[in-house]
């Protein structure tokens, strides 16, 4: 594989359905494993993924997700999300994918900077004490842009 020119990846995670959270986490971890710097900015519902009380109870979305192959009407029935989530977590465990809480520890230990969005935190009435201890701080989007380091930085919205 040729050596990449990407030096830094900045991720914005705005959703908290499991498939989106894992997508961001796997890409951020994958960057560090290639020697690329990585940071994640949690905004809007993405804040659930760093909310101590919520992060272990995230679900996969069964409604409005045609690729789930569950008819939308059925996907909305009570218990469907929980069932689909349980099945997905089982498959993830088989692949040795860590649960969200452990994944956040791995990311932080790997040098991924984790930031909460100031505006979204205020909107949801959340403060630093609601978030995981590994959070590096709460930033405005302007602060987050300031984390870019030249043209070798890429930004990705999830």
């Amino acid at each position: 594989m040729p050596k990449t020119n990407v030096k830094k990846m900045l991720f914005i995670l705005s959703k908290a359905s499991i498939e989106n959270v894992y997508a961001a986490f796997i890409m951020a971890n994958g960057a560090r494993m290639e020697g690329i710097e990585a940071e994640i900015f949690f905004t809007f519902f993405g804040l659930e993924a760093i909310n101590k009380k919520k992060l272990n109870r995230l679900h996969v979305a069964t409604v409005g997700n045609p690729a789930m192959n569950i008819p939308t009407m059925l996907g909305g029935l009570p218990g469907m999300e929980a069932l689909a989530t349980k099945m997905m977590k089982k498959e993830m465990e088989k692949l040795d994918m860590p649960p969200i809480g452990e994944f956040l520890e791995i990311l932080s230990d790997s040098g991924v900077k984790l930031w909460g969005c100031k505006l979204a935190a205020e909107m949801f009435h959340l403060t630093e004490k609601d978030f995981i201890d590994d959070l590096d701080g709460i930033l405005t989007i302007g602060d987050f842009y300031g984390r870019c380091e030249g043209p070798d930085t890429h930004m990705l919205f999830v």
Binding site: P98, E102, D109
Partner: peptide, 27 residues
């Protein structure tokens, strides 16, 4: 081998692993 396996290894933690082998530690 995986980074999760390193965390559970009991031999080394992830922070030290990155410090010892910079630039993509498992690679």
């Amino acid at each position: 081998l995986s980074i999760r396996g390193i965390k559970k290894s009991g031999v080394i933690n992830i922070k030290e692993f990155y410090a010892l082998f910079p630039g993509g530690p498992l690679k």
